[in-house]
Design a protein around this nucleic acid. Structure first.
Lengths: 224, 224
DNA sequence: CAAGCCGGTAACTAAACAGTTACTTGATGG
DNA sequence: CCATCAAGTAACTGTTTAGTTACCGGCTTG
């Protein structure tokens, strides 16, 4: 959950240093980050409480401010980590190694299942957009992270067009936004939707039906 | 924006009463509701400030608590009004009067354009879902409001299936969720999306392209 | 083994906050 | 023309909150 190499890197002066079980800076840091992820995801930026994060992490505010500066910087770190996680997992898919149709289907399935397993990621996106990407815009770590996705998707679409299975107007950004839209809305808005339509959207049967629906819609929209 | 008939209704005792320009309960009430809509949409439930709402409405907290009880009740009223507005406009569409294909296309266009013109509605949905529909669930005014939509949509789909233009597996809730997904995600997440993909999604050309994309995807997913 | 450094604790502070109370103003009806 | 009542004002209160400060204790190094 956190790169242990960091302490070794900065400590040329103290090479033999191994921390005791009681004092474990890396673990405390990781615990704060994880607790903050949950707190921000559940309550948003305005609703999140610094005291609550410290308590959840099994530590106190002093450590939180020591490691992360202030509430806003901690929030940005949480957001950055969330993006890094999904883009890293996405990259490991290697959608270009299959047939174009399978590749797109795989990406749709992966995205849906990732969203399903990481509700905190969806919440964080919602919070960040409520604030018009105020903090994400300040991030300097995320410039290169996302271009790979569009590049690889673009290649798969081109391949499909050459093979005559995809329509010529299929656009990589549009395809990704379609996949993400269908997953994001269903999950992030499940509570109001279940309430107003009087149907529990989150049962296994309904989740399964929507997963198939996403793949169906995505492919139907680009197939010749 | 507010029904003026209410004051006349409760005042049999004081029939000649016409308020002066200075004292205008209905207007104050409406101003608070509108100010609250903006404040909650911009800052969420946790970030919204009661003082700020009073100031935006050109009044003070005393009036706000007098008319709406407390912050939570005011928030619920805002949310209810937002739902009533979209469902009322939707009803006026009468999608059943056209051909099935045109009817679905009209619903998709309407939904997209309504979302585009009412960003505060999308924000409120996001906030309410962050809190797992905590307040919406308490609402007693919204039970009947949404069933009409699914009923009408269901009829149009049936008609299309009989005419042989729609596939047999097309489901009314799925069709509506598809339309809403594509509009909601693009707009509500425009800030993070524009940031990470380095492309401004909100230019007239891009908005127009996405509008056409929504209609295309929706129809492609149900056409035989 | 002593100095000091670093991970960690807990009590504190100033500001912001939701909600309340005491008061003012002005129109109306007896 | 005065008593009443509702609309509206503004200062106040107790609590919560982000951020700080003074302190503790054990490990490492000279």
């Amino acid at each position: 959950m956190n790169d242990i190499g960091e302490s070794a890197k900065k400590k040329a002066k103290r090479p033999s240093a191994e921390r005791t079980a009681q004092r474990d800076p890396e673990r405390t840091r990781a615990a704060i980050l994880e607790a903050a992820t949950r707190e921000f995801a559940e309550n948003g930026m305005g609703g999140a409480r610094v005291d609550s994060i410290a308590e959840r992490a099994g530590t106190n505010k002093r450590m939180l401010y020591h490691y992360f500066g202030d509430k806003e910087q901690l929030y940005l770190r949480v957001l950055e980590e969330a993006y890094i996680s999904i883009r890293t997992a996405e990259r490991a898919l290697n959608i270009g190694t299959r047939s174009p149709e399978e590749g797109i289907g795989e990406l749709a399935l992966f995205t849906w299942r990732y969203f399903l397993q990481h509700p905190e990621f969806l919440s964080l996106l919602g919070t960040e957009n409520l604030h018009r990407a105020r903090w994400l815009r300040q991030s300097v770590r995320l410039k290169e992270l996302h271009s790979h996705l569009i590049g690889e998707l673009s290649q798969v679409l081109e391949e499909g067009k050459k093979a005559g299975v995809f329509i010529e107007t299929a656009d990589p950004l549009h395809v990704y936004l379609t996949i993400a839209s269908l997953g994001y809305f269903y999950l992030s808005n499940q509570y109001t939707l279940s309430t107003i339509f009087g149907r529990d959207l989150i049962t296994p049967a309904n989740l399964d039906a929507w997963e198939r629906h996403i793949v169906h819609v995505t492919l139907a929209s680009i197939k010749r």
